[in-house]
Computed example of a mutant assay.
Amino acid sequence: MGSTCVRIAIDAMGGDHAPGEIVAGALRAREELGIEVLLVGDPQQIEAALPSKTNLGQVEIVSATEAIAMDEEPLSAIRRKPKASINVAMNLVKNQKADGVVSAGHSGAAMAAALLRLGRLPGIDRPAIGAVFPTLIASKPVLILDVGANVDCRPKFLDQFAVMGSIYSEYVLGTPNPKVGLLNIGEEDSKGNDAAVRANQMLRENSQISFIGNAEGRDVLSGRFDVIVCDGFVGNVLLKFAEAVGDIVLQILREELPQGLRGQIGSAILKPNLKRIKQRVDHAEHGGGLLLGVAGICIIGHGSSQAPSIFNAIRIAKEAVDNSVLQRIQSQYQSLQQESN
């Protein structure tokens, strides 16, 4: 690409609040992160969603005449609709016209489009969606993967997730020597089903990661682990549950704060604390998950994403580009293959 500025393609037609909230989050990212955003979708709808004072000459819109609905079967829809916004966005990355893609649309369609158009990184059997969760330790998040890309996982898939998650945790989240755990029903290596026991053994033998054992449900948010691997079925249930807990915590805070003048005074005093609480537990602050294992940067956001979530999803994409996540994963697997030979 001719410019060193990071360019992110945004699926403007994906999500419950498209294109309005998607466009708003993208414009904020352009202003605050200093990146170029390519708004992919129906030009008329995108232009209608732009603020009235927007200079159209400063906004890059890439036309896509189709969109994929949430109730469509992902693979067939991707093939049937080549001009769908998610396909057009992926092609921008494939053709090196963008450094990454952000979509809050159909997550299955986003993954299918990434696999068909970008392909997998060498040595990776299955991609995984990684989601960042807050923990009891401030500024020490935990990365969970997979949270929805693979319903069933072989032990070797979990082993690959651990390597990719460790690289992301170290270079993007800033965690030196990330501690890896396997989500399980007990701490002992012998606990769980046959696949869990075999995965535990494989993770223990992997010299590329710092595996410290099984992680029970109560350990997920403790801060003891930096990366936790699991299959996409369990991971997605965990993700949705954690989001619900965060929403409940925020709702309880709003309900329990005193009303009237006392409440106004108390809220003013507590405002910095309340803001930090929101940043730690509100899933909108984390934006979405990075699809690790495909040959391109792809962030899959929540279908209900509004402008703040889209902004944070674009920020994650930029950080992944800036920290060369793809190149690091590829380099790690090349060295693994050389060792095995």
Results as ranks from 00 to 15, higher is better:
300 I>L: 12
8 I>D: 03
63 S>C: 13
228 I>L: 00
207 S>F: 08
197 V>N: 01
144 I>C: 09
185 I>K: 11
73 E>D: 12
52 S>M: 12
124 I>N: 01
300 I>V: 13
56 L>A: 06
337 Q>T: 11
212 I>S: 01
167 I>F: 03
295 A>P: 04
188 E>F: 09
126 R>T: 06
95 N>Y: 13
231 D>L: 02
302 H>D: 07
274 L>P: 06
90 M>N: 09
305 S>C: 05
279 Q>E: 15
328 R>C: 09
271 K>N: 12
154 R>N: 08
36 E>Y: 09
83 K>Q: 15
191 K>T: 07
198 R>G: 08
333 Y>C: 06
63 S>T: 15
92 L>M: 09
188 E>A: 10
254 R>A: 15
116 L>I: 11
159 D>S: 15
164 M>I: 02
294 V>E: 05
21 E>H: 05
308 P>L: 10
283 H>M: 11
321 V>I: 12
79 R>D: 08
24 A>T: 07
41 G>F: 11
256 E>S: 13
137 I>Y: 07
86 I>K: 03
278 K>R: 15
276 R>I: 13
28 R>T: 13
123 G>C: 04
319 E>A: 15
295 A>M: 07
21 E>I: 05
179 K>R: 15
123 G>D: 04
256 E>Q: 15
96 Q>S: 14
173 L>E: 00
104 A>G: 06
3 S>F: 05
101 V>G: 03
